[in-house]
């Protein structure tokens, strides 16, 4: 009797051990994944990484995601890619009808394709229907990352 019981008890203990192990793993895995911060840089922040130093050549621009809206980062003509002062960043949402603006290397201006609105590199309207300037962002370089912040420039 006793001889039969012991293996059965062992089997149940193994089963239980395996169950605890599997359940523990299934619980800890999501938690571990959760704790490791995701690559996207936080939520609702007032600053985002807009790109890397060297990504833009002088007289080039790119669109980046700022919250749910596009922003535009420009390395001014003749600017030093390593200096934050050479960059200009604005909300890329045209003040006329919310189209996304782009940088025109040929005329060195920010341009909205929808209604031919032109902005200078201070965000001011040069011509076309936009009623207001583009809101400017502050640019800072940390390491080789270019950060753009919505705080007052």
């Amino acid at each position: 009797m006793a001889d039969e019981k012991i293996p059965r008890r062992d089997a149940i203990n193994y089963l239980l051990g395996a169950g605890i192990g599997a359940l523990g793993a299934a619980t800890l895995y999501p938690i571990a994944r959760y704790i490791i911060p995701p690559p996207a840089s936080g939520s609702g922040t007032s600053s985002v990484s807009a790109g890397k130093v060297g990504e833009l050549k002088p007289n080039e621009g790119k669109i980046f995601k700022f919250g749910n809206a596009p922003g535009i980062l420009i390395l001014k003509p003749g600017g030093d890619p390593a200096s934050a002062l050479s960059y200009a960043a604005f909300t890329a949402v045209c003040t006329h009808l919310n189209c996304t603006v782009q940088y025109r290397t040929d005329i060195k201006e920010i341009w909205c394709a929808c209604h031919n609105g032109h902005f200078d590199l201070n965000g001011k309207v040069i011509s076309g229907p936009p009623p207001e300037a583009l809101r400017e962002f502050r640019v800072a370089i940390k390491g080789d990352e270019i950060f753009v912040s919505s705080e007052e420039a």
């Binding site: 059965r8 149940i12 203990n13 089963l15 239980l16 395996a18 169950g19 599997a22 359940l23 299934a26």
Partner: peptide, 23 residues
């Protein structure tokens, strides 16, 4: 898929535990 796997684990564990309780 994750849910299925986890539920199977839980079920497995519960069955093992119930047997242990009986024991």
């Amino acid at each position: 898929i994750g849910l299925g796997v986890s539920l199977i684990f839980i079920l497995f564990f519960v069955v093992a535990l119930l047997r242990k309780i009986r024991q």
